[in-house]
Design a binder for these strands. Structure first.
Lengths: 339, 339
DNA sequence: ACCGGTTGCGCAACCGGTTGCGGTTGATAA
DNA sequence: TTATCAACCGCAACCGGTTGCGCAACCGGT
């Protein structure tokens, strides 16, 4: 059943040439005459020749593949990041091998092996929630494989890092609520194992402290899932006094928070103002539309991929690895009607 | 700079064995003694050996790679589909090479070549909006490469096909509005070049006809983008008589329609009822929550991948290709508050 | 001592494309 | 005529893992 696809050897036989000549002709090697080149290319097209990248990369050590590991592809935020990555990767003539960790440490380790095994030239990753040891990432520097972490990072690692300035964003978000006259501002943060959750919480605390407002621990709620957020905020909104502003740190928590508010029949923003980090795509889905800090998904992906290619470039020039860089992207506040 | 990673030859040298023995030992070949197997595995672990899939697949013709082509990764619907695909693909021990066509015919053709070039064992695709000729897909059957199309398909092709039953879904959606007593129901459909748009429009027309209602062409609006939908429906809602029900055929059109309604200050569902095809994730983001037909993203991906693996299985057993199958998934109506 | 059968392993070809090196040819210069 | 050289192309090794085949060693049985 297996119909072998056409190889350079087929072309060579057809033209009575050697496969080396065909190979060189296809790559426009100067040693080959123009007539031969044209003949080869003509036949290649006629026979529907497609280069076998696998064979090529085995020899040439250039797979043209970039590996990507995300916790979950369909998380609100990640599709945008992937878009940004794909934009750069495609422009460089590379392709993307995408793996999910499903927030499981074991799969993350396994995925790293898979990517190495597939000869990727670099890896982009956002680490899983359950990852505590990072030997699998450190191993990459041993074998000199470029690595860029984004959004969910780990410390003390030899890799480029791309983040949104979470503290700054959270600070500005909550400040916006304060300036609107809100006094009792709650935060819905995420799993505090994630740096992003801690940083956004830090920004929240910082602006309150800077404004001379005491931190009320009952206004700080950590939720793992959207449902979790909804449940906990439904409770919170029944309390007296209840918050008059909420800062939700992610799309995920926002979804839960908004559901809780809708249920409570409170008016937005009169009774309760809402602000968060939210992709443009979803920001205007809510009613009223959200005022939100742009989480910069596309940009993160774009910048992360660009940094990766700089490392790859460095490698292919046989230059020593670059010093690890950290890039902070500042997300702007986009005004909606919710605050 | 390039640190070569360890190969079976390194292991062989280390143990004074031949590379064939090491290869067999690692695959638990019965010819090899248990002592040797254990010794090899022990050293493999110590040296941090990772199999070079590229080399393996060159010889063994098994890349463990599945190719996926989607118009755009971050479209509302596709992340869910990818999730479903990834679920199956990972369980089979395969990996996913994901490419975007960005709705461009040329990139679709290019992507097919890239996937072939990377020795994928099968291809899953949702075709671009601008695709009119399908020779690039037909070529796949020539080289006996399994193909499954989903959601956006082309006709007269030798491939498995997975669809939601668009006509049925649209029929039930609009019927739901009729049963709620709505009389002037508008539809926001998409690019009519897409079968999905035509089918959902057909279901809309069918239920109206079946119910003895005349089709009002001014109530049929095709929109390419969310913004387009918003603009056109803002106009429509100003008309007199204006619709008292809207059926939006996709997440994309729904976003525009809802914005237009919000702007018009009409009440949902009292003044105007809304129904559509909408992923669960987004359905409850709107306020009021949407009544919608489940577009079955995850399921589509899952079923498509399963069909693909059946074809691959067939190939690897050297059996003749299966007859192309078409699977229709019926999306259930999920009640929200918008209708 | 001889034989058939098993066990355990190595040799070498192979997958398809790449590349260093060397060989052939024809033209030009000496 | 012969040395020189560029232009053009083929040979063969190589990338790392897989596999058909063959061979030596060893087994128990006669």
């Amino acid at each position: 059943m297996e119909k072998r696809s056409v190889t350079i050897i087929d072309i060579a036989k057809f033209l009575g040439l050697s496969k080396s000549t065909v190979s060189r002709a296809l790559k426009n090697h100067p040693d080959i005459s123009n007539e031969t080149k044209e003949a080869v290319k003509k036949i290649a097209k006629e026979l529907n020749y497609i280069k076998n990248t696998t064979a090529s990369s085995l020899r040439y050590k250039k797979s043209n593949l970039i590996g990507l590991i995300v916790p979950e592809i369909s998380y609100f935020f990640f599709p945008s990041v992937i878009d940004g990555i794909e934009y750069v990767v495609h422009n460089k003539g590379y392709n993307l091998l995408i793996l999910q960790s499903n927030e499981m440490y074991e799969r993350e380790v396994e995925n790293i092996d898979i990517l190495i095994s597939n000869n990727v030239e670099g890896i982009l990753a956002s680490v899983s929630r359950t990852t505590k040891t990072i030997d699998h990432f450190k191993h990459l520097t041993d074998i000199n494989l470029p690595l860029v972490l984004f959004d969910r990072i780990v410390n003390e690692i030899n890799a480029d890092i791309v983040l949104v300035d979470d503290i700054d964003g959270a600070y500005n978000a909550v400040k916006h609520l304060l300036e609107a006259g809100k006094k009792r501002i709650a935060i819905c943060t995420g799993n505090l194992n994630l740096l992003i959750s801690r940083n956004r919480l830090f920004g929240y605390k910082k602006v309150l402290t800077d404004s001379g407002i005491d931190i009320d621990e009952s206004m700080i709620i950590a939720a793992e899932t959207s449902e979790d957020a909804e449940k906990k905020f439904s409770e919170l909104l029944k309390m007296n006094p209840s918050p008059d502003g909420i800062f939700a740190i992610s799309d995920l928590t926002m979804a839960g928070v908004m559901k809780a508010i809708y249920k409570s029949r409170k008016r937005i923003p009169e009774d309760i103002a809402v602000i968060g980090f939210c992709e443009e795509q979803y920001r205007t889905m809510y009613h009223p539309t959200l005022t939100a800090i742009d989480p910069m998904g596309f940009e993160i992906g774009k910048v992360a991929a660009e940094l990766l290619f700089e490392q790859i470039q460095q490698n292919s020039n046989n230059l020593p690895p670059l010093e690890p860089r950290t890039v902070y992207l500042k997300g702007e506040l986009i005004k909606g009607e919710s605050a």
